[in-house]
Simulated scan of single mutants.
Amino acid sequence: MKKYLVIIVWMFISSLTHACTLSEKGILEAYQKKLSERHQGQLLDFSQLELACKSWPARKGISILVSPYVSTVAQHDDQRFLGLAIILVDDVTGGRMSEFDDFPVSTVDAISPRTVDIDTAAYKVTSKDLAFGLRIKQQNSSGVNPFGEEMLNLYVPDGTGIRNILAGLFTSGYSGEGGEQCVFEGDNSTAFISILKTESNKFYDLKVRQEVTSQVSRASPNGCIESLRKKTTKSYILTFKNKKYEIPSQLKSLSLDK
């Protein structure tokens, strides 16, 4: 059967993002306290990453609030993990509609999270369900061998809870190896997501087209010369199984070793 694109989703964060209001911060702080009591034996740090708040244009009157945190787990040799405290709020009453403690999202080590952005593109994943996304940007601190990536998680409201239906999809990034005198080789990758009309377990299939560009830099008498080595494009179909979209290894975030 021929597949038709329903909508193409590009990595664009809409201008409706806003700084968290005092009331939204209060809601998140109350949930932070609740999570600290729940995570016994763990040290939760809510200060490493900024809060994120955003109106949900497709769901009028609802805002998405996110408090990223890093948890140090003693029973795992003090390994650190990223967690996301997520709340949906009624804009009129200010009441909490749904909440979710997504933990662990990823490991935190040489590659560490830097920002979390709320993505309200039209992720219509079923005939009735509309998902929202969280984009986690992370990178290392190496100037010689730099690495950075953005991964996407998708969530759908489920009564007073929220379900994670896509975890750790690599959507963009860069990596490379360098040396002295402009010597550098690296790759840049970008993923484009399409929602198809074909279904798997009542969820629309996702098509991910990944473009990878390889570049090389060399020293010359006239300075650094950068050149494009090659550009490759591959496509993948993500199907829904066991309550989540299955992600091929080529599209998984490197921080998902948990």
Rank of each mutant, 00 (worst) to 15 (best):
residue 28 L to S: 04
residue 29 E to S: 01
residue 29 E to G: 00
residue 29 E to T: 01
residue 30 A to R: 06
residue 30 A to P: 00
residue 30 A to K: 09
residue 30 A to E: 09
residue 31 Y to R: 02
residue 31 Y to E: 07
residue 31 Y to I: 00
residue 31 Y to F: 10
residue 32 Q to I: 00
residue 32 Q to G: 00
residue 32 Q to E: 11
residue 34 K to G: 03
residue 34 K to L: 05
residue 34 K to Q: 10
residue 35 L to M: 13
residue 35 L to T: 08
residue 38 R to H: 11
residue 39 H to W: 08
residue 39 H to V: 00
residue 41 G to V: 01
residue 41 G to C: 09
residue 41 G to Q: 12
residue 41 G to M: 10
residue 42 Q to E: 15
residue 42 Q to A: 04
residue 42 Q to D: 11
residue 42 Q to C: 05
residue 43 L to H: 13
residue 43 L to E: 14
residue 44 L to I: 03
residue 44 L to C: 02
residue 44 L to G: 02
residue 46 F to W: 11
residue 46 F to M: 05
residue 46 F to C: 00
residue 46 F to V: 00
residue 47 S to Y: 10
residue 47 S to P: 03
residue 47 S to L: 04
residue 48 Q to E: 13
residue 48 Q to F: 08
residue 48 Q to L: 06
residue 48 Q to D: 11
residue 49 L to H: 10
residue 49 L to M: 12
residue 50 E to M: 09
residue 51 L to H: 02
residue 51 L to N: 08
residue 51 L to K: 06
residue 51 L to G: 00
residue 52 A to F: 05
residue 52 A to I: 05
residue 53 C to Y: 09
residue 53 C to G: 07
residue 54 K to D: 11
residue 55 S to M: 05
residue 55 S to L: 07
residue 55 S to Y: 05
residue 56 W to P: 11
residue 57 P to M: 03
residue 57 P to N: 05
residue 57 P to S: 10
residue 57 P to C: 03
residue 58 A to F: 06
residue 59 R to Q: 12
residue 59 R to I: 02
residue 59 R to F: 01
residue 59 R to Y: 04
residue 60 K to G: 03
residue 61 G to W: 04
residue 61 G to M: 09
residue 61 G to P: 08
residue 61 G to I: 04
residue 62 I to P: 08
residue 62 I to V: 15
residue 64 I to F: 08
residue 64 I to A: 12
residue 64 I to D: 07
residue 65 L to I: 02
residue 65 L to D: 06
residue 68 P to V: 04
residue 68 P to G: 09
residue 69 Y to G: 01
residue 70 V to G: 12
residue 71 S to R: 02
residue 72 T to G: 02
residue 72 T to A: 07
residue 73 V to Y: 08
residue 73 V to H: 05
residue 73 V to D: 14
residue 74 A to C: 07
residue 74 A to P: 02
residue 75 Q to K: 03
residue 76 H to T: 10
residue 76 H to N: 14
residue 77 D to R: 10
residue 77 D to N: 13
residue 78 D to E: 14
residue 78 D to T: 12
residue 78 D to N: 15
residue 78 D to L: 13
residue 79 Q to N: 11
residue 80 R to E: 15
residue 80 R to L: 04
residue 81 F to C: 09
residue 81 F to G: 12
residue 81 F to L: 12
residue 82 L to W: 13
residue 82 L to N: 13
residue 83 G to F: 05
residue 83 G to R: 06
residue 85 A to P: 08
residue 85 A to I: 03
residue 86 I to N: 14
residue 86 I to T: 15
residue 86 I to Y: 14
residue 87 I to S: 14
residue 87 I to F: 13
residue 87 I to R: 15
residue 88 L to F: 15
residue 88 L to P: 07
residue 89 V to Q: 15
residue 89 V to A: 13
residue 89 V to L: 15
residue 89 V to R: 15
residue 90 D to T: 11
residue 90 D to N: 15
